Amino acid sequence: MRPFPRLHLITDTRPGRDPLAVVAAALAVAGAGLAVQVRVEDEATDRDAYDLATRVRAFCAEAGATCLVNDRLHIALAVGADGGHVGALDLPVEAARRVLGPRAILGATAREPASAKAAVDAGATYLGVGPAYATTTKDGLPPPIGIEGVAAVAGAAGVPVIAIAGVTAERIPDLRAAGAHGVAVIGALSGAPDPVEATRKLWDALR
């Protein structure tokens, strides 16, 4: 079994963004060490999600990287992704595990130890933990949990913890010291003038 990726890229499909170009740039640097989480805006159709996930899955397969689909697990199954990720308002983790089957990668969102333990008991194989820091990429998020919050979940989880929100290369050493296995990013790459160089800085900090 290949090591679980330390760098997760979540696709940014907001107007003016080019998610496939960013995925290609990140794969050029991190290769098999990257997981791409396909996420689309709520108003996007399933066909939009399927088309993007199909392209991303092909990119990941060529590079030996991991492809996950957020929220829309039927899309994950349709494109043959490696698994999926569910948030607090998506299917419960136990139901998501039944949908994806026993061998798929399944991520769940957690921000404190009790919900983290419950998610793992229900079948999550990794946890997206945050928001670690304040971010403007996604609206409606709860207050940041900070390094202490990440450490609390990492100490209780027993599965890889992927810190998300406000992640920069400069913050990665503190997150890793707190017990995070890796990080997930959106704007740090999709909003970067040079996504290749931005990926390289994140990747070097993770290694």
Rank of each mutant, 00 (worst) to 15 (best):
L9D: 01
A95Q: 07
E197W: 02
V40W: 01
A169L: 04
I162F: 05
L7C: 12
E148S: 09
A184L: 08
R200N: 01
W203D: 03
G166N: 03
V167A: 08
P193M: 09
T45D: 08
A88R: 15
A119P: 04
A61Q: 10
C67P: 09
L7W: 13
I10A: 05
P142R: 09
G130W: 00
I162K: 01
G149P: 06
V23T: 08
T54L: 03
A152W: 02
L27M: 04
C67M: 06
A184F: 01
A184R: 04
L141N: 07
A96S: 11
D18L: 10
A21L: 05
R14L: 12
I147D: 11
H74D: 15
L77M: 03
A180Q: 10
E62W: 05
Q37A: 07
A165F: 00
A61R: 15
D82H: 00
K201C: 13
T11Q: 12
L52C: 00
T11A: 00
L189S: 11
L27R: 09
K117F: 13
A180K: 10
F59P: 12
G128M: 14
A96H: 04
I164R: 00
L68D: 02
A49L: 04
V129P: 15
G191I: 05
G31E: 13
L73H: 02
L77D: 12
T168A: 05
A96G: 06
G84P: 07
G149T: 08
A119Y: 07
A119T: 13
A32G: 04
V29A: 08
R176V: 11
R98Y: 07
I186C: 06
A32M: 02
R171G: 10
V183T: 08
A78V: 05
L27D: 10
L100M: 04
R17T: 15
W203L: 04
G158D: 06
L68W: 03
V129T: 14
R57V: 09
A35T: 02
S190N: 14
A49F: 06
R200A: 03
V93S: 05
V38G: 03
I75S: 05
L141V: 01
R14H: 14
I75K: 01
A205C: 11
T135M: 12
A118V: 08
E62G: 14
V69I: 02
R207T: 14
S115R: 15
S115V: 15
V167Q: 00
A32V: 00
G123W: 11
R57G: 09
P143S: 12
G128V: 10
A114Y: 07
R200I: 02
G33E: 12
G83E: 01
L175M: 13
N70W: 03
L206R: 08
R47P: 01
D121V: 15
V185K: 07
P193G: 08
P3V: 06
D82L: 05
A188L: 01
R47K: 14
Y133I: 07
T199H: 08
A26E: 14
G87T: 03
A35G: 00
Y50C: 13
A134N: 12
A134R: 15
G166E: 03
F59H: 13
G140T: 00
